[in-house]
Computed example of a mutant assay.
Amino acid sequence: MIEAVMLWNEPNNKSHWDLALDPDWFLFAEMVKGASRAIRTENPDLPQVLGGISPIDPHFMRTMIGQGVLDGLDAVAVHGFPLDWNLWQIHDWPSKVAEIRALTHLPVWVSEVGVSSFGAEEVQAWGCARTAELLKGEAPRIHWYSLYDLPREWEATTRHKEAEGSSYYRHFHMGLLRQDGTPKLALETFARHTPDLGICQWFHYDDHRLDDAVAWLKRLHVTHLRTGLSWADSFRPDALGWFDRQMAALQDFAVTVTFCFTPEHRGISPHHTSPPLVREEFAEFCAAMVRRYAPARGRIAASALLPTA
């Protein structure tokens, strides 16, 4: 079920990592290396991917290479939204992937790519088709973001919220389905490109959309899914109950699980973007999740021999 784990999300984006607290990413690098070692101890064969970078920045990747982060990983990833947020054109996708591919021997995944329907649904449908044309064959995994629009009652994960103007509100129009679950024009376009295109869909704690999402993913013939298990959510009541339900519901897909989000009370600053006070705690969370949902084959076989209660 779990085909890979991803360590953090957009670490070079201020909305996901506090660069004021870690301007050279040293704390991030040490945290990821520790988590990677802990995961290898639990399952040495489980592929590990560096959290997708946004913006696509060769300088950041060189920094990770220089700090030895990529030495223990199996792939790197990039995110791009040229019709909404990036300062480059959609036609530049192949060259953007090539920029990062030139720096490392590791495969380069596109773990988030999308187009909002903020301006017009026709723009999203065209963007989906053009993205598929440009990226199929360029990356071993392509995850379209996302299946559902973000509900307007929730907050988008950005640093400055409404002060960002239209850039903020575009976050609520990235889905192939509207908030109420009805299809947009791009849904049919997307369906013509599965299973080459997978989906990135973040599920919030106790997300009411989970079962409907699974039904839609199967209907669309999606085989590869990227989602997250939040370290911050692990401190909520019955967190393991929610994690178990989420992972059981997704068992028919090849899932890339992203580990991210610092619990406020365990950060240097009380925010999910903060480096942790004790970085080994993130490694312990990652190891526990792998032990629970992606144990090594030998450990699965051994557990089958244990007596049941």
Rank of each mutant, 00 (worst) to 15 (best):
M1P: 10
I2Y: 06
K14G: 11
D18Q: 05
L19G: 05
L19Y: 01
L21Q: 15
L21E: 15
P23K: 03
T41E: 12
D45L: 15
D45P: 09
Q48L: 14
Q48D: 00
Q48W: 01
G51E: 10
G52S: 09
P55Y: 05
D57Y: 09
P58E: 11
M61L: 15
R62E: 14
G68T: 05
G72Q: 14
G72L: 04
G72P: 00
D74S: 00
A75L: 03
H79G: 00
P82S: 06
L83C: 01
N86C: 03
N86D: 15
Q89T: 01
I90G: 07
D92R: 15
W93R: 07
P94W: 08
S95Y: 12
K96D: 00
V97C: 02
L106Q: 12
P107Y: 07
P107G: 08
V110Y: 12
V110H: 07
V110S: 07
G114N: 07
G114F: 14
S116R: 04
F118M: 10
A120H: 14
A125V: 05
C128K: 02
A129I: 08
K136M: 14
H143R: 01
W144Q: 02
Y145S: 03
D149Q: 04
D149P: 09
L150K: 06
H160T: 12
E162Q: 12
E162I: 04
E164F: 00
Y168N: 10
Y168C: 06
Y169M: 00
H171Q: 08
H171D: 05
F172M: 05
F172R: 06
H173Q: 10
L176Q: 01
L177Y: 06
L177D: 06
R178Y: 09
Q179F: 02
D180M: 02
G181R: 05
T182F: 01
L185N: 02
H193S: 01
P195D: 03
D196T: 12
Q201K: 03
W202I: 09
Y205I: 12
D206S: 09
H208T: 06
H208L: 03
R209C: 01
R209F: 11
L210C: 10
D211V: 14
A213N: 06
A213Y: 04
L220D: 07
T223R: 15
T223M: 08
H224F: 05
L240Q: 14
L240R: 13
L240F: 10
G241R: 03
D244T: 11
R245M: 05
Q246K: 15
M247Y: 06
A248R: 14
A249G: 09
L250R: 15
F253E: 04
F259R: 04
F261Q: 12
F261E: 13
T262Y: 13
E264Q: 15
H265D: 10
G267T: 02
I268D: 13
H271R: 01
H271G: 03
H272T: 03
P275R: 01
P276C: 02
E280R: 14
E284V: 08
C286V: 04
A296K: 14
R297C: 00
I300F: 06
S303M: 08
L306R: 14
P307D: 11
T308R: 15
A309D: 10
